[in-house]
Design a binder for these strands. Structure first.
Lengths: 341, 341
DNA sequence: CTGTTAGCGCTTTCAC
DNA sequence: GTGAAAGCGCTAACAG
């Protein structure tokens, strides 16, 4: 059984024109009133010769590639990997493939990636941007490319986004700490002036204020989402005698660093220090002290992201002001000590 | 500042032919002895008009897409996500992009994905296959598509592969257990008749035999790499009074299930049961009992995978018999109790 | 040194 | 009911 390499070969074998074969293969046989017999012959030949159309040629003609670009800061981070999985599956269901790009948390790389995707003529892009700057994302959108931002948003800049309600996540977590009698609560933050961080810190402060606790600036520390920041910040926070009784960590990697610091210094959770961490992880429940976490709805973010790019693609040109905030879920385990008893 | 949508537009603006512009843009200006001035003009115009060539058209003509397909069974699994990250980065360095595909541990999906990638005319594919069957992978290779298998191999079937030396991984782990005085050692396995599993089980048995312990078939249990298998198998293993003193778990998800079962039943590691787990995870060190793990060299696997597909693409047609086994590393922590004291 | 042109594989308009 | 042919944007062979 030979293989047909292209539609011309197939057509000539069938003694038909490429036009007819193309129409049949695209399910337009009926509407062109091509005879039953011909239709069947075409399909049989296609199957027999194991013919699969060249999507590159198709893409060139149709000016669409059935391809979506996905830019995330770290594929190895479970949070982003989970989202990527959902996006891939969801996209595939709709006939799209994903070009995966890891921006390495680097704004320059992200910029180049955007250009790369433009050159590759993806039909849309989903991006979890890394920096404070939205200009390059905005530019891409302005070229007519459908763009959905996930994991954050840019205040004042009209790019559709889907992200966690980070404010609520922090707020609930801190209220839970307060309900357990904590008053001196620290916060190890991520990159300043990015919406997730700003909102999480705001939620943290508002929860404190609501319960009559004045936020202490010296208890808000750190400057990026990485492990090292978690480590260093925790060491610093644990130094003074009047140290905090609880820490809110704003990313899973920060938490990892915090755990390392605590372990190194022999501090135990929750007896020596309480912790709530952003991001549920596969092992959260099985840590030395099962971790109370703020779980982002990764599946929902992913699903909505592709639903919305698809939407954007359909209604190209029309304004889209999708702004979706998804409530996270506080998973209460044992990492917050009850100080009331 | 307007944008040039294609090379024709750019050329006509420059009053040059598309041929000249194309040559300059592809760095062939020198060899065609195009004048300095023209070259500069072209580059300036290209930049000014923010021109980026249409890679689809380019791909159609050149019969290459600068694109690699990557098929893995579970993007959300840290083991595969880490490999995917390395592959993406490494590929990009060489001018290639990755089309990411999650096979959901399903052989039928995997088969379809392979066809999808063929239709998308990727220049090569890297696949971590899921089933016992290699036929579809072999077929793809037989069409002339460069294919590299990772994470496993198919005995007797000549497809180049890069995987962990799973035999050595198990062997070392079990020897370590034995050195700590364990004799009754169980093994929760993954999918039977797949090379990682076969080799891991073989390593486990050989280590026992080497130290004069007869492998007990009833201590080898389980049938897939998932969490549920770990859970159920662990429950079963822990039931009898003369239960094993140690368990070797053959995947990170199996381990997760085992941890859940142990926690549920109140068994503590390492006092009630010792464990060594395949796959190092971000939180391995911070579990209730820091886990001794067998760490696969994910970066190396990823790097070699792209190096080798690239190689294959260059030497298309020639036989490639790459068969790389990468030694894993035993990370000794505290999950194996010393029974000698 | 630069231009003209064929053609990559496909879809679709127009023609019969 | 079906076919001929143009054209998507690019590269490269051929021509000067």
């Amino acid at each position: 059984m030979k293989n047909a390499k292209n539609i011309t070969e197939l057509a000539s074998w069938l003694n038909l024109s490429v036009a007819t074969v193309s129409r049949v293969l695209n399910g337009k046989g009926e509407s062109y009133r091509i005879s039953e017999a011909t239709i069947r012959r075409v399909f049989e030949a296609a199957k027999q010769f194991n013919y699969s159309p060249n999507r590159i040629a198709r893409g060139l003609k149709l000016e669409k590639t059935d391809t979506l670009g996905l830019i995330i800061p770290d594929v190895a981070n479970n949070f982003f990997a989970s989202i990527a999985k959902t996006i891939e599956l969801e996209a595939r269901k709709n006939g799209y493939s994903i070009i995966l790009c890891d921006s390495l948390d680097d704004e320059t790389a992200e910029f180049e990636l955007l250009n790369l995707l433009a050159g590759r003529k993806v039909d849309g892009v989903i991006i979890a941007p890394v920096g404070q700057n939205a200009q390059h994302v905005k530019n891409m959108q302005d070229t007519g490319m459908p763009v959905i931002v996930i994991d954050r948003y840019f205040p004042g800049i009209p790019i559709p986004y889907i992200t966690t309600d980070n404010y609520a996540g922090s707020f609930d977590a801190v209220e839970h700490m307060i309900s357990q009698g904590h008053k001196k609560i620290a916060c190890i933050q991520g990159v300043k002036n990015t919406s997730p961080n700003t909102d999480r810190v705001r939620g943290y402060m508002d929860a404190l204020k609501k319960h009559g606790i004045r936020p202490d600036p010296s208890l808000i520390t750190g400057n990026d989402y990485g492990e090292q920041n978690g480590y260093v910040s925790t060491l610093r926070l644990m130094e003074p005698k009047d140290r905090p009784t609880a820490i809110l960590t704003l990313s899973n990697l920060i938490t990892l660093g915090a755990l390392r610091a605590l372990k190194e210094k022999g501090h135990r959770i929750p007896n020596d220090i309480s912790i709530i961490s952003f991001d549920e992880q596969p092992y959260s429940a099985f840590l030395e002290c099962p971790m109370t976490t703020i779980e982002q709805q990764r599946d929902e973010i992913g699903t909505l992201a592709v639903k919305n790019v698809l939407e954007l693609m359909k209604n190209k040109g029309t304004k889209d002001d999708t702004q979706i905030l998804i409530k996270p879920r506080l998973i209460i385990r044992e990492s917050v000590k009850n100080m009331n008893t």
